[in-house]
Amino acid sequence: MSVQINCEQNCLTAKKIYDAAKADVFDAWIDAAKTTHWWGCEDTSKVQSDIEPQQDGCYRHKMTINGVGEHTVEGKIITFDPPNLLIYQMPGFSADQIVTVRVIFEQSESGTLVTLMQSPVHPEYQEIVSNGWRAAFERLGQFFDGQRRVA
């Protein structure tokens, strides 16, 4: 299944089925040694991750993006329910905005369905956010196929 992305009412939804157990897919989201191999947009060449995999834990992904330089995404885990649900918050594009990302992990007949919902995503940022998640979701599939990003 390719990545399915939809943006409606300032909410982005991304879905993909992975050929891996639900616990393994959840773990790939919260294990810093694994996120370094798949996190980031298409032009991300390196990621340094620090993750406190727990309720109220902090996370930080420092990405090296080709042609851009370094970009850091950080926030707080507000719901930690392995291997079913992960909700975290991070600063938005404006100083007073908080973005919430909800990631649901569901076992299906063909693998693990991951559904991500991010909001708000204002119309002017929908393309860049959609492209970033599409690339990350595809790279996560490559991770489960055995491909690793070399740092």
Rank of each mutant, 00 (worst) to 15 (best):
118 Q>H: 08
120 P>Q: 11
53 P>R: 07
131 N>M: 07
46 K>G: 00
71 H>A: 05
151 A>K: 12
117 M>P: 08
62 K>H: 09
145 D>P: 08
43 D>W: 00
131 N>W: 09
2 S>Y: 06
96 D>Q: 10
71 H>E: 00
109 E>A: 01
15 K>A: 06
134 R>I: 01
85 L>Q: 10
122 H>P: 14
63 M>W: 07
148 R>L: 15
100 T>F: 05
59 Y>R: 10
94 S>L: 06
27 D>E: 11
145 D>G: 05
125 Y>R: 12
5 I>G: 01
57 G>R: 08
146 G>I: 06
63 M>A: 04
83 P>T: 02
57 G>A: 09
12 L>F: 10
23 A>H: 15
12 L>D: 08
6 N>P: 06
79 T>Y: 02
88 Y>H: 15
127 E>Y: 04
53 P>F: 02
9 Q>L: 10
118 Q>T: 07
49 S>L: 01
24 D>A: 04
87 I>C: 05
47 V>Q: 03
149 R>S: 14
97 Q>Y: 08
3 V>L: 02
138 E>K: 08
126 Q>Y: 04
29 W>P: 08
142 Q>S: 05
57 G>K: 11
64 T>V: 00
39 W>N: 14
45 S>M: 11
26 F>C: 04
128 I>H: 04
1 M>Q: 09
70 E>V: 00
126 Q>R: 06
86 L>C: 02
25 V>F: 11
26 F>R: 10
10 N>M: 07
19 D>N: 11
67 G>L: 06
31 D>G: 01
54 Q>G: 12
91 P>Q: 06
1 M>V: 10
130 S>W: 06
6 N>H: 08
136 A>T: 03
54 Q>T: 13
134 R>Y: 13
63 M>T: 03
101 V>F: 10
44 T>R: 05
7 C>T: 14
40 G>K: 06
7 C>N: 12
109 E>P: 01
6 N>I: 11
106 E>Q: 15
144 F>W: 13
27 D>A: 14
114 V>E: 02
135 A>L: 11
12 L>Q: 05
32 A>E: 14
49 S>I: 02
110 S>D: 14
144 F>A: 06
146 G>Q: 08
120 P>D: 14
93 F>R: 06
101 V>P: 03
129 V>K: 02
55 Q>M: 01
118 Q>V: 05
45 S>N: 12
135 A>K: 04
33 A>W: 01
53 P>N: 11
102 R>C: 07
76 K>G: 07
146 G>R: 05
90 M>E: 15
61 H>Y: 15
85 L>P: 12
17 I>D: 12
123 P>Y: 01
72 T>K: 05
36 T>A: 11
58 C>V: 09
78 I>A: 00
62 K>Y: 03
